[in-house]
Design a protein around this nucleic acid. Structure first.
Lengths: 246, 246
DNA sequence: GTATTTGCTTACATAAATGTCAATAACAAC
DNA sequence: GTTGTTATTGACATTTATGTAAGCAAATAC
């Protein structure tokens, strides 16, 4: 959030501002020797990924520039290449980490939901919406898709299937308890898909939409609650569905 | 769609492939003089924007490179700068055109809907979904938002408000006809917002989601129909809403 | 202590993309 | 025809990003 603004967070390494006096070799004076900071590899990687994430969230895809990120962390840009091989490697690592975090955030929340009889649609919806808008996660993922960098892992893809699986279990339990017919599997899948798509879209254009519609923070909350209720009503209504339309 | 693949669609201008024989000045021979194609300014702009659009849809934001686009059109890259001032100008022009096309596509369809008593949710939903996924429109718009290039015009923003306005008129008519209480304005707004968000998200991750869930083209159509029906049921149910939840 | 590993740095190389400029050639007006 | 406008071009300038090479220094092992 603030890493972009402040020039050198880890100020431990001295800036070579006055070193221009000597003509070729800078580190001739041992007392003034460069006093390097040496982190563990994993720590360095973490810091770099954090900075890259901040840049991406704040400035969009084009904000991921090795020089800038290096400055944010307080290192030189070849250090990034040392840890990530290439810019592309950094990007892939960032995507991998973000995808993993997203999966954990959503799935753990979904599972830890105390074995609630009724589907707590509001909690789930809010959770998904916030997980995607947090720290520009959806921005990163959409950039990933925009530039065609996803396939192999398909972390974000399988996620929805997993969610649908979890949801379907809950719905079946609820149906048995209330002596209702088992819900259609595809119906549950569609609920998950719609939630994912809506949350994803919301994370990207939601702010614009809300601003344009004159919605404040409370209005946005109402919108999410409204959506959750829409799903909730649908889940309660599925058994009547055939009587009504088509 | 195909402009990226084929190197020179407008093959009228001769490639200077064999011109390397002469050592400095190529156009010494008047018979072989370069035979330029000279389009009208608007025509040239159109071709350039088309090519840029194709690139963007096919390769993502990074696919917009003056050299490549110039090659697609069959011109030199300074010609693009001549028409659009800068790369940024090209991008803004593309955004403006795409936004305008989107607005027209959606609004005209919404208005021309024969004064149908019941809201034809299926048509509207399908229309919005397709308008956004067509030619990478949502990709472009999301890139626009990702890189923070929207404000001023706010074409995409006000669009949702307009849609909501149109929808609300229809709902009021329908309500009067069926002697039901007038629908809540915010409810209509939320319908529009949800549709926009879902269609937007769908345009970006929909393909991934569908693939992962094992949905084929028919399945995707079912999903959209399912969503439309969800809205349709909700619209029919709004007056009972208070009896049920919260 | 000495040796080894490896995180990190400076300086340089390279490439790629945007943008500038002067000149050229279509086309329209007269 | 002549002239003026401007779409278009090739060659060049500039900037800026990624990536490379070689050496330095902090931790660890011995």
């Amino acid at each position: 959030m603030s890493a972009v603004t402040k020039p050198t967070p880890h100020q431990t390494s001295a800036k070579p501002d006055d070193a221009g006096a000597s003509d070729t070799i800078v580190s001739k004076d041992p007392k003034r020797s460069v006093k390097r900071v040496r982190r563990s590899a994993s720590e360095a990687r973490r810091l770099i990924l954090d900075a890259a994430e901040d840049r991406l969230a704040a400035q969009g895809p084009e904000g991921i520039r090795l020089q800038d990120i290096a400055r944010d962390v307080g290192i030189s840009h070849p250090a990034i290449l040392h840890h990530f091989e290439s810019r592309e490697g950094l990007v892939r690592a960032l995507i991998a980490r973000t995808s993993e975090q997203l999966r954990e955030k959503i799935l753990s929340a979904l599972k830890s939901e105390r074995s609630n009889e009724t589907l707590e649609a509001n909690d789930i919806v809010t959770n998904v919406f916030e997980a995607l808008s947090d720290r520009g996660t959806a921005r990163l993922l959409s950039w990933m898709l925009l530039t065609g960098r996803s396939p192999e892992n398909s972390t974000s893809g399988s996620l929805v299937t997993e969610i649908a699986g979890e949801l379907h279990e809950k719905r079946k339990e609820g149906a048995i308890r209330q002596n209702r017919p088992a819900p259609d599997h595809e119906d549950t899948l569609f609920i998950a898909m719609l939630t994912a798509s809506a949350a994803f879209g919301d994370a990207i254009i939601g702010r614009e939409l809300a601003k344009d519609a004159g919605l404040d923070q409370a209005g946005i909350a109402r919108f999410r609650a409204w959506f959750a209720k829409l799903l909730y009503n649908h889940v309660g209504d599925t058994q009547h569905a055939e009587k009504r339309g088509d």
